[in-house]
Design a protein around this nucleic acid. Sequence first.
DNA 1: TGCACGATGAAC
DNA 2: TTCATCGTGCAC
Length: 189
Amino acid sequence: MEKLSRRFYARDTKQVALDLLGTYLVRMQNGVRRVGRIVEVEAYLGPHDLAAHSARGRTARTEVMFGQPGHAYVYMIYGMHCCFNVVTERVGHASAVLIRALEPLENVTANTRGPGLLCRALDIDRRLNGADLLGEEISIFADKQAARPMIGRSARIGVAYARHWAARLLRFYVRDSAYLSRRPKDRTE
DNA sequence: TGCACGATGAAC
DNA sequence: TTCATCGTGCAC
């Protein structure tokens, strides 16, 4: 197991999203380690992507998206749930990958099928906004020996307002996982 | 300062 | 299908 490097995150967002499938999200808190395998993600490509928060420009909320890759972008949605993203590409590019579902592996008992639920299960909230994923509190590890998962793709969830960007197949998931946050009719190509 | 609206989840 | 519930961004 190897912690993902800055270089891993500083690449094409779609590629980072695909490569994150099957990796391990590790949350350290009070000496307790919680681990989940990432099985579902969405790519948000930058300010030109009308579904991305950065499409509204640089604001207090999206500041982290415009910063260095390999950092956590955590925001609150619908006034009650947090969503966890990893910042990708170069500084100023403002792209990120939303982590949508995990397979619970270690010290995780709550439901992790959905972006809000996985944050609750791993106690991820806005205190972690801006946290460095190369640090201790929250990080992601890859097992280089592991087989590449079979990947499915679909349109992203809840972005109908984003005009032609809503149809882009930028949601990726491990096809045979039992821990996906269902919803749209999945296409597999 | 006010207001419309979500990268959701759970209940009905 | 509906609703709970509030931070954000933008209009005024």
